[in-house]
């Protein structure tokens, strides 16, 4: 699947930038510094917009295109901002054969956004992820750090409603 690129306005803060620059400084001399830096950047900002990748490109003196190539190669990196609640539906093999594709569709229709998008109010984002390591509970979805296993399409509305108010 091609990575969805957000056109939402970048809202990075000075504190976030300082954290990013610290992370770059920490890893800069390591071989293969780009991966840990991208991971930390994603933790800091929640996603890797062009503004963030540009800072990394300048600091590491790596072409922006190459960094973008890495960020679109690995499924762990996101180019769209995360909402207050990030709903992640596992499309790994086990979950998929157990019907997680339908669950993703249901979440998508309730929230009115496609996978890799964020609602306008910034409350929910939706991710189609690959294996969270809980195949025994397939199909699995997570909302932030809460894991929901053996989910059925009918349960989706109820699960989401806890986060709606």
């Amino acid at each position: 699947m091609q990575k969805h690129i957000s056109n939402a306005t970048f809202k990075g803060t000075k504190e976030q930038k300082k954290k990013l620059l610290d992370a770059i400084k920490k890893h800069k001399q390591e071989k293969g510094a780009l991966m840990p830096i991208l991971q930390e950047a994603q933790t800091i900002y929640g996603y890797l917009p062009i503004e963030v990748q540009t800072i990394i490109a300048r600091e590491l003196n790596i072409p922006l295109r190459e960094i973008f190539g890495v960020s679109t190669f690995y499924s762990q990196f996101s180019l769209t901002p995360k909402g207050k609640y990030n709903v992640s539906v596992c499309l790994g093999t086990a979950c998929y054969v157990k019907g997680s594709g339908d669950i993703l569709k249901k979440v998508s229709s309730i929230l009115g956004i496609e996978a890799e998008e964020c609602t306008k109010d910034g409350k929910f984002s939706l991710t189609a992820c690959r294996c969270v390591g809980a195949c025994g509970l397939a199909p699995v979805m997570t909302i932030n750090d809460n894991v929901y296993g053996r989910v059925t399409v009918d349960q989706v509305e109820g699960i989401l409603s806890k986060y709606l108010e």
Partner: peptide
């Protein structure tokens, strides 16, 4: 210059520019 390269992965890989 390095403004073009392979983006995305596997069957979706395509040559293109950053973002």
């Amino acid at each position: 210059v390095a403004v073009i390269g392979a983006n995305n992965r596997g069957f979706d890989t395509q040559m293109g520019c950053a973002f």
